[in-house]
Write a protein that binds this DNA or RNA. Structure first.
Length: 560
RNA sequence: GCCCGCGUAGCUCAGUGGAUUAGAGCGAUUGUCUUCGGAACAAUAGGCCGUAGGUUCGAAUCCUACCGCGGGCACCA
């Protein structure tokens, strides 16, 4: 609420001669008013006056300055200053939109990051949903957002899968791939990975064979080889993976502007790391090239192994360089699970040594992992992980059981909302049955709440002539409560953008919908003397709900 | 061992320095309703906010120690 914020600042300046004091307006419990500040409490020491006195003086001054905008200012107990807006102000604010604080910024958001030759797990679904929401938040704040995806199409895991494939095909026989049916491809690759991994862990000779394949795959990229039997198998299966990813993203409504395969970032990373080795950023050790993190309170990591191959670290260095080359970003956001927090610190610290601007513009946001009820952790190496599609299928089954029909939109809303309503950072406990419940604080509840409101509007158009509303009418208490909540939307979005926490939007939308359902239960809209005014409230409410759900990547159809 | 993160109702989570009653949802118990779409609304029960100290006018929130859980700590990603 900018007007109050500015009035407070100037009052503090006039009365106490202080500048640069942030009043920190916030939303109090409803009965205290629409906005509140504890600035009087915080100025006690500095001013040597009692909080009550400070609050009283500010209050008296603001009462005059904000005449017409607020209905009244009140000072409560230790020294809180509470503001109740005038009805007229509430109507004005209902048209406000979130501040565009990232206008003209180029922001790269990287997320999802599945590896070709492996299968998509529940974690990929979660990180995709979170990434979409965060990208949407930046977009809402005016930024030019580029959604990018990074994945390992080279590296040991690929070599393991390739080993499994070659075993399964009885040699390097690309033509035999045709025996794998289209809808079996992703599962088939996943099985080959599991086999390759066990073979690797069992040791030589398989391990040596896999290491050799790993080299050959890097070489194949260097030579741009598409003809040799190994290359034909590789490119074919790589494409299967990308097709499979595309289907999945299509199903959940994600899209990416660019895909960075590791085969592309690896050479760039190697070149950068070798250059910086000369300048002493990286160091040789036991035949490998490393970065020593200890001077910075971090740990040492290998960037190029003693076989001369780049590790994930170097590919990430290359990725940062590639993103900069392509977008000259103002900010680069990387969203991953928590387990690579320390790892990423080392990578960024190394980049900071030669490209401080890039390191400083990069923010690593991490979230927890998806666990099954009972705390069972999944492992892709063991092949017992909870698959991304299994989550969606479980949600669909629950939806079907509840409603009797199959509604993919509702299913997706249920899953996305279940993931997003929780603060990013901690693990998510996924219960295939209850987390997808269609009651209570859920996506379907909000979709329903929206459709219900749209339905009222539609009905009103049929039954009554349209007319411009008396928008300055005096609000009844329940109408006012609703409008006051509606008006909060831009504040919530700004907070979500500032802290990059989409769950603030979920919490707000749910509270809003609850408030509306309460209102709706007790107040007639159509046929009421106050119909025009109330329809206006219904419209604002439905629009805010729709916009908010859109940020979360959840559709808000007019009818379900 | 060292480093990082997390411990809030039976379960899943909000709340991350403020308002003498710590909030939701689910589950449990019970009401409302011949519905402007009941996927609703209303009510009851359930918590010394991991433990112990400390800082502060004021702590679930900040600091310290301890306990418990998870993650990371050189050639995987």
């Amino acid at each position: 609420m900018r007007v109050i914020d500015e009035a407070l600042r100037s009052a503090i300046h006039e009365l106490f001669g202080l500048t640069d004091v942030d009043p920190q307006l916030s939303r109090p419990d409803e009965h205290f008013g629409d906005y509140t500040t504890n600035i009087a409490l915080r100025l006690v020491k500095q001013l040597g006056q009692s909080p009550q006195t400070i609050a009283d003086r500010l209050s008296a001054s603001l009462q005059k300055d904000l005449k017409g905008i607020i209905e009244h200012v009140t000072v409560v107990k230790p020294g809180f200053i509470n503001f109740k807006l005038s009805d007229k102000t509430l109507f004005t604010l209902a048209e406000a939109v979130p501040e565009k604080r990232f206008i003209d910024q180029q922001i790269v958001v990287e997320y999802s990051d599945p590896n070709p030759f492996k299968i998509l797990h529940a974690g990929h679904l979660y990180t995709s949903v979170v990434g979409d929401a965060i990208a949407n938040l930046f977009e809402l704040a005016g930024a030019q957002v580029y959604r990018v995806n990074f994945g390992g199409d080279v590296g040991l895991h690929v070599a393991k899968t390739m080993y499994g494939i070659i075993q399964e095909l009885g040699g390097e026989h690309p033509e035999r791939l045709s025996t794998v049916s289209i809808n079996q491809r992703s599962a088939w690759l996943s099985s080959r990975y599991v086999e390759g991994n066990s073979a690797y862990e069992a040791g030589d000779p398989a391990k040596a064979a896999i290491v050799s394949i790993n080299h050959r795959i890097y070489k194949l990229h260097e030579d741009d080889d598409h003809q040799s039997p190994l290359a034909r198998i590789y490119w074919q299966c790589r494409q299967w993976s990308y097709d499979y990813f595309a289907d999945f993203y299509n199903r959940i409504g994600s899209h990416f502007d660019k895909y960075y395969p590791e085969s592309e970032t690896a050479p760039l990373g190697v070149q950068t790391v070798r250059e910086q080795l000369q300048r002493g950023v990286y160091a040789q050790s036991d035949g490998a090239i490393i970065f020593k993190g200890e001077p910075y309170g971090l740990h040492t990591r290998v960037f190029i192994n003693s076989n001369g191959l780049p590790t994930y670290e170097t590919k990430d260095v290359g990725l940062i360089m590639a993103k900069w080359r392509d977008y000259h970003f103002d900010q680069s956001i990387v969203i991953t699970a928590n387990d690579i927090v320390e790892y990423m610190k080392v990578v960024l610290k190394s980049v900071e040594q030669f490209a401080p601007n890039l390191a400083q513009a990069t923010t690593h946001i991490t979230h927890g992992i998806v666990k099954l009820t009972g705390g069972v952790k999944m492992s892709s190496r063991l092949g017992n992980g909870l698959l991304a599609t299994a989550v969606l299928d479980a949600a669909a089954a629950a939806n079907r059981a509840t409603t009797g029909i199959d509604n993919p939109g509702t299913t997706l809303a249920a899953v996305k909302y279940a993931f997003l309503k929780q603060r990013i950072g901690a693990d998510i406990i996924y219960d295939p049955v209850s987390s997808v419940s269609l009651n209570g604080n859920s996506g379907p509840y909000l979709q329903y709440a929206h459709a219900r409101a749209r339905s009222i509007m539609q009905k009103s158009q049929k039954t009554t002539p349209k007319s411009g509303g008396p928008r300055q009418a005096v609000l009844e208490p329940e109408e006012r409560r609703l409008l006051s909540k509606i008006v909060q939307y831009p504040d919530v979005v700004e907070q979500a953008v500032d802290e990059l926490l989409p769950h603030y939007i979920c919490t707000y939308l749910y509270e809003l919908a609850q408030l509306f359902n309460h209102f709706y239960e007790h107040n007639q809209v159509i046929g009421s003397e106050r119909q025009t005014l109330r329809l206006c409230l219904v419209e604002r409410y439905a629009t805010v709900l729709e916009k908010g759900l859109m940020v979360l990547g959840i559709a808000a159809p007019g009818r379900l």
